[in-house]
Design a protein around this nucleic acid. Structure first.
Lengths: 362, 362
DNA sequence: CCAGCTTGCAGAATCGTTTCTTCGCTCCTT
DNA sequence: AAGGAGCGAAGAAACGATTCTGCAAGCTGG
């Protein structure tokens, strides 16, 4: 009872526990953290008193002393004011969910932070103590990443970094292999001219996918047939789909790079009286389960955002805890082509199907 | 240069800035925070030196001293090991996105935390300093909420709390009005017997919606026709939809309480040879934009999770900053019935429609 | 019987800020 | 000329934990 100066009503501190248990604060700390050399009896006693007082250690004090906060930043490149674009929403949501889950399983929590940083005033970035950061799709010479690395904070990115961005590690899909495999699948189903619905932006996903398409075309001796549109605009996709099917050299199969392209293309095909899959084979990249239920169900390429999120966090925590010393700092994750009716030439006529079978949900 | 003891390489502290600028640490702190009485020249000088040294104040130290962390918890009731159930995914994702955005706009960041707490060891909850918490759909006598309130931390819930849970404030939709309005809409479109696809769980959403339905039926003198299924199981919905349409007293309109019910019901209707909307009117509660593109487009009830997320955060931050003293601590948010073809008796024949019109996106 | 080891615990420094208090100085007023 | 007001800045006490070091007692062994 050295000094009992104006206790805040709500919370008991380590000093209160020490006083109540008749021991020193060192003993309380050691007992609660399983450190030091204490007999089990003392430990139990201290724990008991702490429980009775409803003691919770101050996270801020612990962080200050130990230098570890147990917090991992998750940056989300913001387009305009909003985090996520409409087209990437499902991907981000699932990725963030998995990342959060993986972090919690290892005792860390995720903090959602903006992709940009207002540097001059104190922004939210400098107001939170981070052990590490996950950054989704970092841009070329991303100032946030550069600053974090300068501070010695590990950074792992989802998507390979452009340029010479100095991230600690990264995880990405094998986009080249994914697109090639998918085009082979369409060709095997009888496609003679495969079209592409792509984006106008320069992010790695769009770039790698498109160039893989072009290379495939060159190898197979097919003229590329594609339409590009600004992917962040949800309306533009429908228009681009329309354009693609209105071309004189109309493709007999289409791959759409973005999530809503499947419904866009289906609607466009309907307008032009094209039957899917008889007149037009369809595949799009999507994480949405709705394509299992469309008429006909549409084949999708899943990037497996769940696995990516999990892996990114594992890599980051390994780096934080110094356990990942000599392991590879980049990891390529497989994609998953979910083949449905839209990409297979009809064999049997449509039958009355049983209630929808369970989508396997990673 | 009082003590220049082993500087960690990465980071400069306030002391280093003070030394480099030839002033005291008090002056540095005041200059950088815009406090105290300092001439502009000194402020500028200090800021300059701080910039040059790449000084970042320690968030932990500041939090320890001021008692404010700028962090808001977002709990997610976990079912089993995973956050979110499949059926609520879109709602949660959108709500979390809006909440995060609103928090960032006011200088706070969101921390994603699990709904449960392992109390005896140090869990992630006690490892993070929170200024307040948003809890989604708290259960009756939620231990997390109780503990937080005991610690004097403001808690605002999305969804009215069950029982006498002592939350600081809550936000919810007017489920009664939403269901009533929706049923009136269906009746106006010619429905004689409206069925309901509902859940077996006891959360407030399911309970309030179902009882609103039953009361509406009683008022209108209609026999209730409903099927309940465990909403967390994505397959069970299709089966329940089937059961509902297989009944001898088959309804001529159906409202499905959960997101996937729209596609489930559409598929079931197709199996039974029922045309929508001619033979069966359809509405479901969903945040998904895909129902704008189904054949036919399906009328949906949106709970406006974005608005809810924003409001919850505003209320919480007001409480944290003590600005919400005399304002109401609960807020009812309107829902939005997005009327599409599935709930209107066909007037004109289907025409070639123009490319999908932009969904207004909140 | 005493040096030396182990055990059980306490003291006090430390983490990096914010902020309360103090203090010297200048200038103005009467 | 003395006293007060006001400015500019420094000193030092928190904030609440962790942890290094030290100290007294109780054993053991030669």
């Amino acid at each position: 009872m050295s000094r009992s100066r104006g206790r805040r009503l709500g919370r008991a501190g380590i000093r209160d526990v020490a006083a109540a248990a008749g021991v020193s604060i060192t003993t309380v700390s050691d007992a609660l953290n399983g450190k030091g050399r204490l007999p089990e009896a003392t430990r139990r006693h201290v724990r008991e008193v702490a429980d009775r007082l409803g003691y919770r250690p101050s996270a801020a004090a612990r962080t200050l002393r130990t230098g570890k906060s147990g917090l991992i930043g998750l940056t989300v490149t913001t387009y305009g004011e909003e985090p996520f674009t409409f087209t990437e929403f499902a991907y981000f949501a699932e990725m963030a969910r998995a990342a959060s889950s993986a972090a919690l399983a290892r005792g860390y929590a995720l903090v959602i932070l903006p992709g940009s940083t207002r540097q001059s005033p104190y922004d939210v970035w400098s107001n939170v103590a981070l052990d590490g950061t996950v950054v989704i799709d970092p841009s070329d010479r991303d100032p946030v990443v550069t600053e974090l690395v300068r501070q010695g904070i590990p950074v792992v990115s989802d998507g390979r970094p452009c340029g010479d961005l100095p991230v600690t590690a990264w995880v990405d899909n094998d986009h080249e292999a994914a697109v090639t495999g998918l085009l082979d699948h369409l060709a095997a189903a009888g496609a003679r001219r495969i079209g592409l619905l792509t984006g106008t932006s320069t992010d790695t996903y769009t770039r790698l996918s498109t160039s893989a398409y072009l290379r495939w075309c060159e190898r197979k001796g097919q003229d590329p047939v594609y339409e590009a549109y600004p992917a962040h605009d949800p309306c533009a996709g429908a228009v681009a789909a329309d354009r693609l099917l209105a071309r004189p050299d109309r493709p007999d199969a289409v791959y759409g790079l973005f999530d809503p392209n499947g419904t866009d293309l289906l609607a466009a095909a309907r307008r032009y009286g094209l039957r899917v899959p008889d007149d037009l084979l369809l595949v799009c990249c999507s994480e949405s389960a709705v394509y299992a239920g469309t008429e006909p169900p549409i084949t999708t390429l899943s990037l497996k955002p769940g696995r990516i999120g999990t892996t990114v966090v594992q890599l980051l925590i390994d780096a934080i805890e110094g356990a990942g010393g000599n392991r590879p700092v980049q990891q390529i994750m497989p994609t998953d082509l979910i083949v449905r009716a839209s990409s297979q030439r009809r064999r049997s006529q449509t039958t009355i199907s049983a209630p929808r079978s369970p989508e396997q949900h990673d």
